[in-house]
């Protein structure tokens, strides 16, 4: 599913909203999430999952083309942990209740 498909699906379920508002809403939600993470804040959505930042230590990397060593500074990377409901709904090996 792409962002435009998500917008279409949501538009079908929210017939009282016009397409422009659905499109804007999706963009606002994603931008809100990106903003929070870039400020170092977690996102917690019960049943879906949580997003947080993981610290990455500084390390010496290599340019794969030239083999040259490159110093990489420490940084943060986004991390997603699926919530219980999502895990259970996705894992088809769990029998449905």
């Amino acid at each position: 599913m792409t962002k435009s498909e998500l917008i279409e699906n949501l538009a079908m379920k929210h017939t009282h909203l016009n397409l422009i508002d659905v499109e804007s809403s999706v963009k606002i939600i994603l931008e809100h999430m990106a903003q929070s993470l870039s400020k170092g804040e977690r996102i917690e959505i019960r049943g879906f999952g949580s997003f947080s930042l993981h610290h990455r230590k500084a390390r010496t990397g290599r340019n794969p083309k030239t083999g040259e060593a490159v110093a990489l500074a420490e940084k943060y990377a986004p991390h997603f942990k699926p919530g219980k409901e999502l895990r259970e709904r996705v894992d088809t090996s769990i029998p449905e209740q």
Binding site: G40, Y76, R87, V90
Partner: peptide
């Protein structure tokens, strides 16, 4: 550990770059 299906998230380049710029300690 039985065979199972899981979700993984891979952040896009744009989000990665925005988050990398974050220098403080994580709240």
């Amino acid at each position: 550990i039985l065979a199972r299906r899981v979700v993984t998230f891979k952040s896009g380049q744009k989000l990665k770059t925005r988050v990398e710029a974050y220098a403080g300690s994580v709240k």
